[in-house]
Design a protein around this nucleic acid. Structure first.
Length: 558
RNA sequence: UGGGGCGUCGUCAAGCGGUAAGACACAGGGUUUUGAUCCCUGCACUCAGAGGUUCGAAUCCUCUCGCCCCAGCCA
């Protein structure tokens, strides 16, 4: 808590200064305002953490508010998913707020604006509207309907509300300045006709407020003090302020913009994510390869790892592209602490210990976490037939290969030192079995004569293990920035982002996994059971993330 | 050619006139029954560039260059 005096990121600095000046009576109220038109992704997590953390840090509150002013795109399933995901991430909101709960008040505000002569009903068609708006370098022209008398506007707006107009026929516009260099101020539309059923208000309305009108007023109605949003809304701030200054509102929140998150080798836009789902490049919104929070959750990401990541990357106004490696580093950091260790063989190679008694089984004692005694031990059966990893054997290994090879001795973790005596191949010349001997004196893994064995490999008891499917995931795209330029970003999809292994042998204890628990398969990585894909007789495990692998680094793929 | 932003290590990011934090990555080394973890060490004489102000600048001023956003009845 010596953080107190540090300024932190620029938003934190602004809030501290406001507090010092007793602005907003020393209150801090933020909000996370998703539109329920899709699922949340890691980019949203940044905003969620920022908003909830600022509120918490300054003894304030953060509202979850659905920005549901466009019924054409919004659905209840998204609302449900978003609520669930925010909770899963570890944030509490009492009851969610909805912009749609303010529709009546918003309507009154619109009428107020008309009465003030600051809004008018415009009968320009969408095409005409575009022409009148001008361009980036040319001023716009006033709408011929701009000077309709107040009473006429009132009547027309009422007719809009009563369904007398078709979509696109009329709009309600703020009367600001068609010559403004800021296009957002060229008489922006604040209400449009939309004959759609709203997930929450049903068919009560056939006119809906636009974002710019809805957002600032919703903020004000809730007493928000700091309205944090992304950079692209910077141009909208003058409009945000204009509306709140023009209308008689409870308070005037301060909009502050920050840069949204980007991560390399993936995409973080709802539109592109949706495309990946629709075109079946992935299995669904919760595909473990997706940066959606539901996907990451299914993959095995923990809320703690995600929150830590969001805190670590900071907040600024600079466009950035964060290294996926940092996310993975945060993940490993958390998983290393909490994941129980187990053994599992992904690509099994049968090993027969020729000098081990037939039919005998011993219980070897394995630690559930090498650095945490308190996590306890477990017993693992050992017998004459075991499986080891195919990658842990090389017929003609280089000197630095510390694993199995003809005549080489390695330690079977928590069991014995074994030496490879014979290699058995099939007709194709593929190694299908190893005949080894074990040193009975080395039970547990230590040699009484003090002889050093450099390599330790994992194994699974052949006659008492679990058959499982394991899914290995790699980055979804081969290009660091898949959305570069205007070319089709799906061309950069990594064809090897998913590898399914169907003949995996896992330690028996994995037969009953607690939902959501991530295990470390020693020497391989972190894995968790995929409850959605698992069958009764064939559990499916997802590889959450690999372990750091110094060996893989020095031997660039054989 | 209009308006709004942004440019500090490979990637994020502190710094707010007193002489470049930290994290990830990377490179060495140590411990280790996971080539994991952990622990050391190294890693920007320089802050997009050029001028200027100052005893002193990444921090102030001027100009130049580069990148991002805006012309939905989307948010």
């Amino acid at each position: 808590m010596e953080e107190e005096n540090k300024k932190g990121h620029f938003i934190e600095a602004i809030i501290k200064e406001d507090l010092q000046n007793n602005k907003n009576n020393g209150q801090v109220l933020t909000r996370f305002p998703p539109e329920p038109n899709g699922y949340l992704h890691i980019g949203h997590a940044k905003s969620i953490c920022l908003n909830f953390n600022m509120a918490k840090q300054f003894n304030g509150i953060c509202n979850l508010r659905f920005d549901d002013s466009n019924p054409a795109k919004e659905k209840q399933i998204y609302i449900d998913s978003i609520k669930d995901t925010v909770n899963w991430l570890g944030f509490d909101f009492k009851t969610p707020f909805y912009a749609s709960d303010y529709f009546d008040r918003l309507h009154e505000f619109a009428v107020q604006l008309i009465r003030k002569g600051k809004a008018y009903v415009c009968s320009l068609s969408p095409e005409q509207m575009r022409e009148y708006r001008g361009t980036l370098t040319e001023k716009g022209k006033n709408s011929p309907y701009r000077d309709r008398p107040i009473q006429e506007n009132l009547d027309l707006f009422d007719q809009m509300k009563n369904g007398k107009f078709q979509e696109g026929e009329v709009t309600l516009r703020a009367k600001i300045d068609m010559a403004s260099p800021n296009i957002n101020l060229r008489d922006p539309i604040i209400y449009r006709v939309k004959k759609a059923t709203h997930p929450r208000t049903g068919d009560k309305w056939c006119i809906y407020p636009m974002y710019d009108f809805t957002h600032c007023l919703s903020d004000s109605l809730e007493g928000i003090t700091h309205s944090l949003c992304s950079l692209e809304f910077e141009d909208h701030r003058p409009l945000y302020d204009w509306i709140l200054d023009t209308l008689e509102t409870p308070c005037h929140p301060q909009q502050i913009e920050f840069a949204r998150m980007n991560i390399n080798y993936t995409v973080l836009s709802k539109r592109k994510l949706q495309l990946l789902v629709e075109q079946h490049h992935v299995s669904g919104w919760d595909d473990p390869r997706l940066p959606t929070l539901e996907g990451m959750r299914r993959r095995g990401y923990t809320p703690e790892a995600i929150r830590n990541f969001c805190n670590i990357i900071g907040v600024s106004k600079k466009d950035s592209r964060i290294d996926m490696g940092l996310l993975e580093s945060c993940l490993r950091d958390d998983l290393n602490e909490r994941a129980p260790r187990v053994m599992g063989v992904l690509k099994p190679l049968k090993v027969t210990i020729e000098n081990y008694p037939d039919g005998k089984t011993e219980e070897m004692v394995a630690m559930n976490h090498p650095q945490k005694e308190e996590m306890g031990n477990r017993a693992i059966g050992f017998s004459k037939q075991i499986y080891v990893e195919q990658d842990d054997f090389m017929e003609d290994p280089p000197k630095k290969f510390f694993r199995l090879g003809p005549g080489r001795e390695v330690r079977l973790r928590y069991a014995y030192l074994v030496t490879c005596k014979q290699v058995i191949k099939n007709e194709q010349g593929e190694v299908i079995e190893l005949i080894c001997t074990h040193d009975p004196q080395t039970r547990g893994g230590n040699a009484p004569d003090g002889r050093k064995v450099k390599g330790t490999i994992h194994w699974v008891n052949a006659n008492d293990c679990l058959d499982a499917e394991v899914r290995l995931y790699d980055r979804l795209f081969t290009d660091e920035n898949p959305e570069q330029g205007n070319q089709d970003f799906t061309e950069n999809l990594n064809p090897d982002s998913l590898e399914i292994l169907r003949n995996c042998k896992l330690e028996k204890s994995l037969g009953a996994t607690a939902p959501g628990t991530v295990y470390q398969f020693e020497r391989l990585g972190y894995f968790c059971q995929d409850l959605k894909a698992s069958q009764k007789d064939m559990p499916v495990f997802n590889r959450t993330v690999t372990l750091r692998d110094a060996w893989a680094k020095m031997s660039p793929k054989a």
